[in-house]
Design a protein around this nucleic acid. Sequence first.
DNA 1: CAGTGGTCTAGACCACGTG
DNA 2: ACGTGGTCTAGACCACTGC
Lengths: 257, 257
Amino acid sequence: MSDAPLTDRGSAPADRSASSAAFSPLYQQIKGLLLQSLDRGEWKPGESIPSELELAARFQVSQGTVRKAIDELASENLLLRRQGKGTFVATHHEAKVRFRFLRLAPDDGKQSVSGSRILDCRRVKAPADISTLLELRSGEAVVNMRRLLTFDQTATILDDIWLPGAVFRGLTAESLGRYRGPLYGLFESEYGVSMVRAEEKIKAVSASDDQARLLQVAPGSALLQVERVSYTYGDRPMEVRRGLYVTERFHYRNSLN
Amino acid sequence: MSDAPLTDRGSAPADRSASSAAFSPLYQQIKGLLLQSLDRGEWKPGESIPSELELAARFQVSQGTVRKAIDELASENLLLRRQGKGTFVATHHEAKVRFRFLRLAPDDGKQSVSGSRILDCRRVKAPADISTLLELRSGEAVVNMRRLLTFDQTATILDDIWLPGAVFRGLTAESLGRYRGPLYGLFESEYGVSMVRAEEKIKAVSASDDQARLLQVAPGSALLQVERVSYTYGDRPMEVRRGLYVTERFHYRNSLN
DNA sequence: CAGTGGTCTAGACCACGTG
DNA sequence: ACGTGGTCTAGACCACTGC
């Protein structure tokens, strides 16, 4: 604990009582630095981050302060603590985590086999509503893909997905067709985009003729419409997804606390 | 701080290394004791609980341990910390909290005036599905009420609510009619039931003729169907609520973390 | 000013996972 | 046996609230 250069700290331990005017606790500053490292890709999804003692040394604070910063990141599901092993960066490549964002569950509780069929994937100029949601300049390029998800051979979800074109270069129907696994896992590994949080708006709508045909239900059937905006580190929107769910034998589950 | 009887602690500070076999950290035990006090009504909704130092003395542990127990209860929204003032028992009598359980929001973001009309309220023998969800013996008495919620004079939510009859004695259409405010606030003040958590299952359905008439939409319109089971302390189910939402100008909002 | 919760530290010890 | 995160303590000091 000598006078090592505080490469990761803006201020020395002394001037901590800035009083009034935007007071920010130390552990929040540490949390910010950890977030920067995550965003920068210093530690990749699935990897472990340095131990609490190492981080404490690096940031010149006590272990307890680092711990509190990590606690918050863990409670936001950005990090995962495993006693005896270390702290790991959350990843969408895990069976357990696949249902963190997919809230549709079978009414009878039985697990089912899922399948995905890409309907199309094109690069287009962003429509006004999409560019607003993705915080892009109007007319900027986006990737638009549509896919059909099935459970036990039954068409259940029709997704219409929009991604910023500048980030998702080289994403084509073909590359998607080759890939097996959760889409957010692909985004992580191939494009360095970690989805960290999402907001959903849900409505009930009637199926159009096209939608009814694809989902193999009667035209005019009631469908669940889910509009999702997903965010990566720093609350940067990275995906707009409009899903239509057939809720005949499935339901959207939610917990209120 | 002498050798007061440890009325609230099963074990002395010494035997804390029971090792293996159901090891439970001290702060979890403290959390359990706090939950018991809340359940027992020792501190009522809206009131403050004893200070951390008082509780530490009572339970014969350090302030830090009490703090960690309270931290968890606060993160579950059972308690509310207010710096400089104290820690308070959460209550549904607060404008802020009214939207903790109501997830329906207007598409245009504008606040609207809400109204409630009780359609009927009867005591009946519980149907099989309800008694299962409420963990009652089959045929036990329940209160069944239906109501219509409006926003800006527009019918929007049709609720069908089931409550255990043994707990909600004296709940009638008349007493409900007199009451102004959130239903969960009434449950708190009049029946000592604090709703703490809820699980929802959401589907899209088509409006029946009766439902369509009450909600003033076309028969067959798509509606959001929300089935909620609400729990009080100790995960005891205390309400089943089946709601039908008109999502023409409103949406169900949800955050995924 | 006193009392409350909030932050930060330093150190001891425990539980877990891996050699 | 060692290193990791998890618990618990004791004490100092800070920020907010209300008298």
